[in-house]
Design a protein around this nucleic acid. Structure first.
Lengths: 365, 365
DNA sequence: TTGTATGCGTTATCAT
DNA sequence: ATGATAACGCATACAA
């Protein structure tokens, strides 16, 4: 039923070596014999056993897409789903496959059965503890980090331009719309992404001589959460200096719409209102809009709202949300591109690959 | 650096065979030696080469998750993302990994490099041509089809209860809300899922003695699209008889919100209005709601709207959408469960595994 | 241009 | 209880 290489070779009256060469289209084999072998292979519907090929060549053609999260959503997440798609398509173009592997961040020793010696490289898509990273390093498995960067040699980092996107949005709010009193609403800032967005928020104020919105009546949430604050070295790597946190970012637990709604309700009740809100994510923006709407005010007339991410649903809000367009698909593509680079040249030095963001102005600002 | 089995064996002063047995926790090896070997393995951070294991055992521990689509979104899709998550989690519980593999539906011969002999089983998540299916069969690779069913022996099908969900929604509309004039809006009905939803729509009318909404002023789109209409045998398998298509379902190209919006605008302009709309998907429902809103009417006061899928965003519509809750995550789990069954018992007879749906009543009806 | 022999890192069979 | 040795299915260095 299943034809093996030896079968094809025997039928063609050649050795396994020749058959192998013919199938690999090696120039070392005579055209005539090659054609005959290929013909027979086709006839018998021969497909090489990729596993055996992999152990022989020490190259599996599989890339790991690893997420360190304690539970789903993994790819049901609006960012990682499209990112996986980008990775899949780019991998496909180069005849690579992708193996998805969630990993519990609590398991610092990375004991995944399969992934260890069977993978040509790995993409780490979430904030990943250093232990598994070192594990990969020890085993000389090329790796690419997404949306995180760790000061270290010989790594590639894929970074979305969080800072640039947020800065462009602030410019839009301040220059084009004339806002001078802008609130920032976010979950914990220990996630590098949110941190960078907030840094841009701060810098924009400085740049345009504005005062940061400060509302002492709103209790400030847990600024950094369980994770450590991104350190100076990391920020320097990303072209950012460390800033003192000024003002009162409205901090909420998680980045859910519900929590944002509650926080903004509270803000509205204090009477000290900003004219615009920069939300750390579209979900947060949605919650903010709901709160404003419930308070009998209008977006953007009374308070403008801008988001970040550009989820598919954000265009369907009423009014449609002005937001920073992220491109997770491009992130996935970039990750695979860089990983393949790293595979073909393992000694390549550390580098950061930036993926652009841009604002899309709709009706909420 | 990388310790192999032979290294461990040599250091422990035993043969590879014994070492292998010890690591597999075989009872054939003395406790004492076993412990020593395990100790050494740990010390040298030994990890077996899964690839070599796979070729030796003819079992890779990898499940293929295959999507026949001509382009993305693959897992950026709101249904397949969560479904993959379900599959991942269930696979993980049984120490399996998942390899994602898109495949162009135009390539009828399924010539994926890796997937052929390296995979213990495969999940086909989209409407899949029969050729690749037969290819898998020939190679005796267990397979599970999701949301499709092909009359054939020795296959497992995971079906979402489309019919039951739509029927429950119709009951809600008719019995609880008193509607008697209900329009159905959908993309092409050749997709089995939409077909079954429409069948329930039809049956409900019969069951409650209602007349199907018929609006001859709206041009009926392409009823079946490029795909063949689900045949009698398939429908019988799913407990459905073939029905004559009555009435005029509003058919649109694709299931996008934009197209739905246009279609409903047109419907509204005819003056012959239903009191409720059953949309084939939440996106369609969104488009319908926008059209109604634009025409200066209110949901649900003037026209009620019900959807199908329960996307995360549907709860954020204004008003929040009443819809049929689908559970792609559970579909993924079920698919892996059935696939593992099939792997351990390849001769198992064909069967259908139903995954429940239920309606969630919010504010749009 | 082709064949022989060996290696890849395991598991499995058959002795002992 | 342990060891030698043969698979597993392919690639490749070396010979011819």
């Amino acid at each position: 039923m299943k034809a093996r290489l030896s079968d094809i070779a025997q039928i063609a009256g050649v050795s396994k070596a020749t058959a192998s060469r013919a199938l690999a289209n090696s120039p070392l084999v005579r055209e005539e014999t090659k054609e005959r072998i290929l013909q027979i292979a086709k006839e018998y519907n021969y497909q090489p056993n990729a596993l055996a090929q992999a152990v022989a060549t020490k190259r599996s053609g599989i890339l790991g897409f690893c997420m360190h999260k304690s539970g789903s959503p993994y790819f049901g997440h609006s960012f990682f789903g499209p990112m996986l798609d980008g990775a899949i398509e780019e991998a496909r173009r180069h005849n690579y496959h992708i193996l998805v592997a969630p990993a519990d961040p609590k398991n610092t020793t990375f004991d995944e059965h399969f992934i260890q010696d069977s993978i040509d490289g790995v993409i780490l898509a979430t904030f990943t503890p250093v232990e598994p990273i070192n594990e990969f390093r020890k085993r000389r498995i090329p790796l690419v980090l997404v949306n995180d960067a760790i000061p270290s040699p010989n790594n590639t980092f894929i970074m979305q331009d969080e800072y640039g996107g947020a800065m462009a949005m602030m410019r839009h709010l301040i220059v084009e719309r004339g806002h001078r009193k802008i609130a920032f609403i976010s979950g914990r800032l220990s996630h590098l992404s949110y941190h960078l967005r907030y840094l841009a928020y701060l810098d924009a104020h400085r740049q345009y001589g504005l005062q940061v919105y400060n509302n002492p009546d709103i209790p400030m949430g847990n600024l950094w959460g369980d994770f450590p604050r991104p350190d100076a070295e990391k920020l320097a790597m990303l072209g950012q200096r460390v800033q003192e946190i000024e003002g009162t970012p409205i901090l909420i637990k998680g980045n859910g719409a519900q929590q944002a709604r509650d926080a903004v309700c509270q803000m509205l009740s204090t009477g000290d209102l900003p004219t615009a809100i920069l939300a750390a994510t579209d979900s947060v923006a949605l919650g903010a809009m709901e709160a404003i709407w419930e308070a009998g005010m209008e977006v953007p007339k009374d308070i403008a709202v801008a988001g970040f991410d550009d989820l598919p649903m954000s265009a369907t809000f009423s009014p449609p949300l002005t937001t920073v367009h992220a491109n997770p698909f491009a992130m996935g593509e970039a990750a695979v591109q860089e990983l393949l680079q790293l595979i073909s040249n393992p000694e390549q030095e550390s580098r950061i690959r930036w993926v652009d963001t841009h604002i899309v102005v709709r009706k909420s600002t």
